[in-house]
Structures are given as C-alpha cells and as structure tokens.
C-alpha cells in the first residue's frame, strides 16, 4: 500500500543540515538524489526537529527557514516552534 510522505529540498549548503537532521531523526527515511534536489521519502511520518538542525549548524535555527530551500512535500503538516511533522493518518 502506498504510504510514504515526502519532502524535497534544494541540494545546496543551506539544506544540508536539514537533510542530515532528517536522516538522524527518521530511521525509515530514504534519500533520493536528483540533479539540483534531494527527495526524502519516509513511511507514514517524517519529523524535522529544530534542536537536531541546530546541533548540525552549531547555532540557532528557525524552522520556518525551511521555506527558503523547500521544493515540495506530501503529507498532513503539523508545525510549531520545535517540530515540523509530515504524516498520514491511515
């Protein structure tokens, strides 16, 4: 059954710590490289944690800054100051 959520980010230095944080926090995440972009699939739920991104960049990070590198996504979104979550409810 089709059940992946996904997020796609530009393949640039700004996105790199976000991609690394996603891989750390989502054991089911599969990273697909394509020219210029990275698409990350994950079954049912994918989370981006602010603290993990901040560890990667060694400084503060505002989760809304993902808008600068975001290409596309699929899934219901829950966002607050600490987490950005994509999920399906089935």
């Amino acid at each position: 059954m089709a059940e992946n959520v996904f997020i796609a980010l530009q393949n640039n230095p700004d996105a790199q710590p976000i991609i690394e944080a996603i891989v750390d926090d989502n054991p089911g995440a599969v990273v697909n490289d394509s020219p210029g972009m990275v698409k990350i699939d994950c079954p049912k739920r994918l989370v981006i944690k602010r603290v993990t991104v901040e560890e990667k960049i060694g400084g503060e990070f505002n989760l809304q800054d993902i808008h600068l590198t975001l290409i596309s996504l699929s899934g219901n979104i829950e966002e607050d100051d600490d987490e950005f979550v994509l999920h399906w409810n089935f």
């Binding site: 059954m1 089709a2 059940e3 992946n4 959520v5 996904f6 699929s74 219901n76 399906w88 409810n89 089935f90």
Partner: peptide, 14 residues
C-alpha cells in the same frame, strides 16, 4: 501518482 498520489487518497479515504 501511483505512490505519492495514492498515499494521499488513502489518507483522504477517512
């Protein structure tokens, strides 16, 4: 479509 689109419609089935 067949993967991501169908996941979406699986979710909307509720």
């Amino acid at each position: 479509w067949e993967d991501n689109g169908m996941a979406l419609f699986n979710d909307l089935a509720r």
